[in-house]
Design a protein around this nucleic acid. Sequence first.
DNA 1: ATAATGCTTCCAGTCGCTGGAAGCTAAAGA
DNA 2: TCTTTAGCTTCCAGCGACTGGAAGCATTAT
Lengths: 131, 131
Amino acid sequence: MNIGAASEKSGLPAKTIRYYEDIGLLTADRASNGYRDYSIADVHRMRFIQRSRRLGFSVEECRQLLSLYNDRERESADVKTLAKTKLAEIDRKLVELTELRDTLRHLVRSCQGDSRPDCPIIEGLSSSQRK
Amino acid sequence: MNIGAASEKSGLPAKTIRYYEDIGLLTADRASNGYRDYSIADVHRMRFIQRSRRLGFSVEECRQLLSLYNDRERESADVKTLAKTKLAEIDRKLVELTELRDTLRHLVRSCQGDSRPDCPIIEGLSSSQRK
DNA sequence: ATAATGCTTCCAGTCGCTGGAAGCTAAAGA
DNA sequence: TCTTTAGCTTCCAGCGACTGGAAGCATTAT
C-alpha cells in the first residue's frame, strides 16, 4: 500500500508519516519504483502512534510505548507507569485550563462591550496576579 | 531598572523580554552603559503580556490586546470580541482534554500493571478509534 | 585585585510538524 | 497514443515561542 492509502487508513498525514520515518519512529519497505510500501501492521503502528499523540504523549514517549507495543513480552507495568504519569499531567493541565476559563469568563461577563475606554478585561489582564 | 529586576517583577524570563523586544512587542530605553532600562509602566506592560499569554492568547493576539491597552481610547467591544472568541476556544480544549483523560483513566484502571503481556493500555492505544 | 555576577549580542537548537520546489512515476481521459 | 493530472520522491525552509550557549563588556562583592 502506498503512502496515500496508509495515510488515509491511519489518519496521519503523509508528510507526518515521512517525518516519523525520518526520526526513526517508523520504517518503510520500498516498492520497485521507489515508493514506500506499507503493510496492515504498519498501519496499525501508525494508528497506535496517532492515538498516543492525541492522548498527549510526546513523540519520545510514543517511541517508548511503541517499543512496548512491538515487543509484547515486555511488562505491562512499564506501560501503566507511563500512562499514570501522563494522566496526572493531564489532570494538572485540566485544572489550570479551568481556572483560566473562569477568569476569562468573569472578565467577559463584566465587560460592557460598548465604546467606553474603561474595559475590565484590560484592567484584569494588566493587574490581577492570582497565585 | 535593569532587565533582571524587570524580569523578577513581571514574571517574564529576561530571555523572553529580549525576545519580545526583538519581535517588536516591547520596547526598551537604554542606560548610558548600554543596559536596558525599564520603567514601572514597562513592567505593567510585561505583566499584561505575561498574563495574556498564560490565558492562552497567542503573541499575535497579545499584540492586538496590547495596542488596545496602550491606547485606551479604543473601543472595549474589540477586546470583548477577542476575549469571547478565546473563551470558546478554551472551552473546546477543555472538552477534548476531558475526553482524553477519561480514556486514559479507563485504560489505566483496566490494566493489571503486572508482567502479563496483554496490557489493555496497549490494546486500547492500538485499536480503539472513537469518533 | 580578583572573582563572580549581570548585562550585551548573536547564532543555533528545541518540538512536531508543515509548506513548497523540483523532478520522477502512474493512472485516467481525449 | 498522447497528454494531463495526480501521486510519489527528496530536500530545504519555516512556523511559534521561546531557550541555551558562547564570547565579551560592566558592575558588584570579597
